[in-house]
Every structure is written in C-alpha cells, then in structure tokens.
Simulated scan of single mutants.
Amino acid sequence: MKINIKRESVAEYDVNIDGATLLEVLNEIKRSQDQSLAYSSGCRSGVCGSCAVRVNGREVLACSHHAKDGDLVEPLRNTPVLRDLVVDMDKAYSFNAKAKAWQSSLAEGVELSIENQHINELQSDCILCASCYSACPVYAVNSEFLGPFSLTRIWRYVSDKREADPKSKIDAVQTNGVWDCTLCNECTLVCPQGISSKADIEKLRAKSFMFGYMDPSFTNLGGGFGGGFNDGSPVF
C-alpha cells in the first residue's frame, strides 16, 4: 500500500500493512522507514482530537481513518505548519478567549431539568480537533473569524439555562462572528463528533435578533429594517 505524505514536498511510502488506521500506518513508517516523520497523536481512540489531518482533501482523525492505497495525507489548513503534519493551534484556540466561550456567571436558584440538560449535550462533546477550523473557507478572506468550534462553544453556554448573562456572549460574537459565516456546512461534514456548527451559528443569529442585533448585510439593501448600521450594532 502506497501512502503519500505532504512534507516540504510529497513523500511516498510503501507500507506492507492492510486494514490499519492511518495512525498505525504513520507509526509503522516512523518505526521502519523514516524516523524524521513528525505527526501528532494522543489517545488513539478518537477522543483527544490531536491526530487530526487532511486525507484526500478532507479532514479526518488519523486514529479513526482506515488508510487506503494512494491516500494523500496533509496537515490541517488555516494553521501554521510546524513540521510535516504538526500544526500550531495557538491562534485557533485563542478564538475561544476572544469569543468569551465559557460560563460567565451562574443564575441563582436555577435547576436544570432532564430536557434542559440535553439541549447542549452534543455541543459539550467538542474535542477541539480543529477539523472544522481547517475546513472553513471563511479564513481564506478573514483570518480573524471566530470560527466554527468557538461559535459552537458560545451556543453551548448561551443555551445553558444557568448562564446569568447570555447577552454578553451574544455581544462578543457580532464582529468576525455569526454574520461572517457563509453557512456552507463544511464544518458539519468533517466533525468527528457529528456537531453541526452551522446549526449552532443559525441559532446564535436568531438569538442576536432577539437582543436587537441585525445582519449587517441588510445595509447593502438600502438599509433595510431601519438600517444605518454596518458593524452588527444593536438596533433598538
């Protein structure tokens, strides 16, 4: 089985191993052919997300993807490549801080029902593998876009009945946030946890309307809905 790996140039390796995951193939290449090959891995169980790469133009977890003859393996996009398949995730993770993607304050006396607990259960399963970050086309034109996993994380807290100040989170995602997404759904297609960031962003947009914000693109249509704002400012 031949595996092509994008390094400084594309390197081809012939591996005598069938039915293996890509991570097992990479381990075999490093063990028996090229000790200089660099890649990331952790749990080997599809839980930590550290082994995310692109195979044949699609983001996957190396520990879950079953390697096939002729596969082209590349590092994630939209992130600086440190070496081979290892990328620097610092900027991607920094968007969680910019988006204030945490529980700000707890409302007193709020008890969650079973139904409430299930509202954001899926969003809580995000493993921060950044597959959605890599697949997102918006970064090609806006490197400051908060991005799918940060916006999904925001919805996880905005939808939490215990969050005492959801508006502060909605305020934080108006610039380079919910209105910049093209709703292309690429993030959903590559998420190993089956999370739809597109759906979460649509819900954040609906919540933004509830807090008095509007889509800035409406201003390009003659200032619809009483426009005049072009930066996601509240409309009262």
Rank of each mutant, 00 (worst) to 15 (best):
L22I: 01
L23P: 00
L23H: 00
L23M: 07
E24T: 06
E24R: 10
V25K: 02
V25Q: 01
L26K: 15
L26S: 14
L26N: 12
L26A: 14
N27L: 10
E28G: 12
I29P: 01
I29A: 07
K30C: 05
K30N: 06
R31A: 11
S32T: 00
D34F: 07
Q35Y: 15
Q35H: 08
Q35N: 12
Q35R: 14
Q35L: 11
Q35F: 13
S36P: 15
S36N: 13
L37C: 04
A38F: 12
Y39M: 06
Y39N: 05
S41Y: 15
S41K: 12
C43D: 13
C43N: 08
R44H: 08
R44D: 02
S45T: 14
G46M: 07
G46H: 03
V47T: 08
V47N: 09
V47R: 04
C48E: 12
G49D: 13
S50C: 11
C51H: 10
C51K: 07
C51T: 04
A52S: 12
A52T: 01
V53W: 07
R54F: 04
R54H: 14
R54P: 05
V55C: 00
G57F: 13
G57Q: 07
G57P: 09
E59D: 06
E59T: 01
E59P: 01
L61F: 00
L61W: 00
L61V: 03
L61A: 01
A62C: 15
C63Y: 05
S64V: 08
S64L: 13
S64F: 06
H65Y: 10
H65D: 13
H65T: 09
A67R: 04
K68G: 15
K68A: 15
D69V: 09
G70F: 05
G70M: 04
G70V: 04
G70R: 02
D71G: 08
D71T: 03
D71F: 04
D71P: 09
V73W: 03
V73R: 06
E74I: 08
E74S: 09
P75W: 00
P75D: 09
P75E: 05
P75Q: 05
L76G: 04
R77D: 11
N78K: 05
T79G: 08
T79H: 11
V81E: 14
V81L: 06
L82I: 13
L82W: 03
R83G: 14
R83L: 12
D84G: 07
D84K: 15
V86A: 06
V86M: 12
V86Q: 13
V87P: 07
V87W: 04
V87N: 05
D88Y: 00
M89L: 10
M89G: 03
D90M: 13
D90G: 11
K91G: 01
K91I: 02
A92R: 07
A92Q: 09
A92E: 12
A92S: 11
Y93F: 02
Y93E: 01
Y93L: 03
S94T: 08
F95P: 02
F95R: 00
F95K: 02
N96D: 10
N96P: 02
A97S: 05
A97C: 08
K98M: 12
K98I: 06
A99Y: 02
A99N: 00
K100M: 13
K100V: 03
K100Q: 12
K100Y: 02
W102I: 06
W102M: 12
W102S: 06
Q103A: 05
S104D: 10
S104G: 09
S104F: 07
S105A: 10
S105G: 12
S105T: 13
L106Y: 11
L106G: 13
